[in-house]
Amino acid sequence: MAYDMYQERILEHYRKPRNSGHLEHPDLSGDESNPLCGDHIEVELKLDPKGSTVEDIRFSGDGCAISVASASLLTLRIKGMPVSEIVKLTQEDMEKLVGVPLSPVRIKCAMTSFVALSHALSSPKASAPAESH
């Protein structure tokens, strides 16, 4: 079971995480800590001028293989995606995206970036671009 979660796809994203780092002028940002292991992930978003689509995304922070790979996979998924669709994503969608068997404790690792993303979308700045159209 334990080795099943470290499939090559996960390890590859852990080794070379996509969209890792910071944006110069993010429109939105959010973070989340995993109180079980002390991991911390921050997500930054750049929206299109209308504020309806995610144009760019970066994540940063410390994490285990599962949380880093999950964050990397999540950024690939939501880049270019309308905010209205992102907010409909569920934990189940995230589990499917990660696609490896995870124990209840390790699911929390996979969800850290997802929760950080939802914090970013519900952060105070989120309403500003939405109001402008």
Binding site: A2, Y3, L36, C37, C64, A65, I66, S67, S103, C109
Partner: peptide, 12 residues
């Protein structure tokens, strides 16, 4: 080796 990954593989 991140401690969380370590604990998972040690459990194995």
């Amino acid at each position: 080796v991140h401690p969380h990954d370590m604990a998972s593989l040690l459990d194995h």
